Simulated assay, not measured.
Amino acid sequence: MVAILSREQLQASAPSVFAASPWERMSGRYRMVPTIDVVDMLGEQGFRPVRALQGRTRIPGKGDFTRHLIRFRHDDHIGPLAVGQELPELVLTNSHDGTAAYQFMAGVFRLVCSNGLTVQSADFGSISIRHSGGADFRERVIDATYQVIDQAPRSMAAIEGWKGISLTRPQQLAMASAAHEIRPNDAIKPAFLLTARRNEDYTDAEGNRDLWTTANVLQENLVQGGLRGRASTGRRVTTRPIKGVAEDIRTNRALWRLTEEMAKLA
């Protein structure tokens, strides 16, 4: 069963979610709606926070207002899950330092590796709500939420199609080369990104692997890091995990688009 984040866990992971006022350098036009208020609004609709992440800053005093990300799952998908199952998620990002509006995106969680991609299809990206306040703010939040969730069946259908597309080793290498460009690192070769971390993600006897599994192996290696390589100086290095909100979103959405394009080619 998925672990729903308590308020204490949410605050430990992303304290800026609980900011009660904007960063001191914000102008008077900024209308403050604390993220925790939106979390509560979504909770009334059955959406529970299951993961949170906060960005970093080098500016003194700005840490409690930086960009943050929360992934939500609906009550309908909170129960026990089957290994390998995928579930739709709602992804929310915001900041209270003027760098981002409220942004709602679709996400997909894969149980086998406990990772989550962010959907970025050709006809659906995200919905933004500016920090302008207003009596209809709650209505706009709920409307944006269900617009995102309405896209879930199409995303899940795409995934089922990708599971049926088998990639040869050369095709996997081509996809890994494109993924390597998303987060370039001269210390590792693109082929390193195809390293499976569990039996379920291994290739078959002929070296083939389906498109969806390939995408998730690439995603896990890019996002979680931990790959060992050698820098141009000869020094051994280990790739770092993604910890920033903006980079997390950029990488995951780029991988989704790459998988869509690979499906067309394959």
Rank of each mutant, 00 (worst) to 15 (best):
A157F: 06
R29I: 14
R198C: 06
R73W: 00
A176Y: 04
R197G: 04
D136V: 07
D75R: 08
P170H: 04
A178K: 14
R140H: 03
Q147F: 00
L87W: 03
V38F: 10
R169E: 14
A52M: 08
G28N: 10
H96G: 10
F72V: 09
D64K: 09
K62T: 04
D210M: 10
G61R: 12
L173H: 08
R253Q: 15
A174G: 06
P88E: 12
G134F: 05
D123H: 12
R197F: 13
A187L: 08
K243W: 01
L222S: 04
V148M: 03
M1T: 12
A158F: 08
E260T: 10
I182W: 05
S16R: 11
P88G: 07
T195C: 07
G164H: 15
Q147M: 02
G43Q: 10
E206Y: 08
T66W: 02
D64I: 03
D210A: 04
I129W: 04
T239W: 03
V237A: 12
L69G: 02
A178C: 02
A144F: 00
T251N: 14
A205S: 12
G61W: 08
F192D: 13
P22V: 14
N208A: 08
Y146L: 00
W162T: 08
T203S: 12
R197I: 02
R209T: 06
A191S: 12
G225R: 07
K264C: 01
L69Y: 12
E261R: 15
E261Y: 02
I242T: 15
P241G: 01
M175G: 01
G133P: 04
N216E: 10
Y202D: 10
L227H: 06
G229R: 08
T145W: 07
R240S: 09
G229L: 02
A179C: 09
A191V: 11
R58A: 13
V108R: 10
I159R: 11
M26D: 03
